[in-house]
């Protein structure tokens, strides 16, 4: 551990530094710099990877429950929809905006936005149902320009740019380790073919032969969503690196 010692200045150096401090204060009082963004009249420009509210695409969702399982704040609950499938609902009262759900989604059904300022009338309404997640949340925008922070040498400067910042981003789904389902214990397989039924992409196929069932995984088309692994009653399937 290093002990911090006060620098050993002479009286002259002390005076010089005091004068410097006062000079800086006077300069800034006369020609001030500003780093305050006057939200909501202007908005800070967020990076495209900003973790804001989520949009949900039910057509891509495979009801794998991955988002609900990984949510560290237990904000995501799966609700049964009319078509008998389960879709996520997010309680933004609990959400910590970590976007683990988005990263874990195997099919890219959850999309990020840069929206972060949604007002609710009460706590109950913070529970956002699946239908409300399809469209981005409604916010009132008063901003006519956006603000960027530029670091120039030692100082931080504010740059104001006219025009609205686009809050909806079109990012490709996050890259992840490519994995495919495969069978680690073929002898323990009961041949129930549940995996074939749950697979959204028809990757697992079975063919009934005379003395048994032949199971085939099409490695080219497997997305590694892990639905079959989760559903296998004997746990003979596992995700392996491609």
């Amino acid at each position: 551990m290093r002990k911090v010692v006060a620098p050993d200045y002479t009286v002259f150096e002390h005076v010089k530094r005091h004068v410097e401090a006062v000079k800086t204060a006077i300069r800034e009082a006369i020609i001030p710099e500003s780093v305050t963004c006057s939200y909501p009249k202007e908005r800070r420009k967020m990076p495209a990877s900003f973790r804001g509210y989520l949009i949900f695409d039910p057509d891509r969702c495979i009801s794998c429950f991955g988002c609900a399982f990984i949510c560290p704040a237990n904000a995501i609950r799966m609700k049964e929809a009319e078509d008998g499938r389960y879709y996520p609902t997010i309680d933004y009262g609990k959400c910590i905006f970590c976007h683990f759900c988005l990263d874990s989604c195997p099919e890219g059904a959850l999309k990020p936005t840069k929206i972060h300022d949604v007002a609710y009338r009460d706590l109950d309404r913070m529970l956002t149902l699946t239908e409300e997640m399809i469209e981005p949340p409604e916010i009132i925008r008063e901003d006519k320009r956006y603000v960027e922070y530029v670091i120039d040498g030692r100082d931080l400067h504010l740059r104001r740019v006219d025009g609205e910042d686009e809050l909806l981003v079109d990012l490709p789904p996050p890259s992840k380790v490519e994995r495919i389902a495969s069978c680690i214990d073929p002898e323990s397989c009961t041949g129930c073919r549940i995996c074939e039924e749950v697979c959204e992409h028809g990757v697992i196929r079975s063919s009934v032969e005379e003395d048994g069932v032949r199971m085939v995984i099409d490695s080219e088309r497997c997305t590694g969503c892990g639905l079959c692994v989760k559903e296998c009653s004997m746990r003979v399937l596992r995700l392996v690196r491609r």
Binding site: S182, E209, R214, M215, L237, R238
Partner: peptide, 12 residues
């Protein structure tokens, strides 16, 4: 750890 992509289940 690898696994099989194709396997056969003996049916009684």
């Amino acid at each position: 750890m690898g696994g099989l992509l194709e396997w056969k289940v003996r049916a009684p």
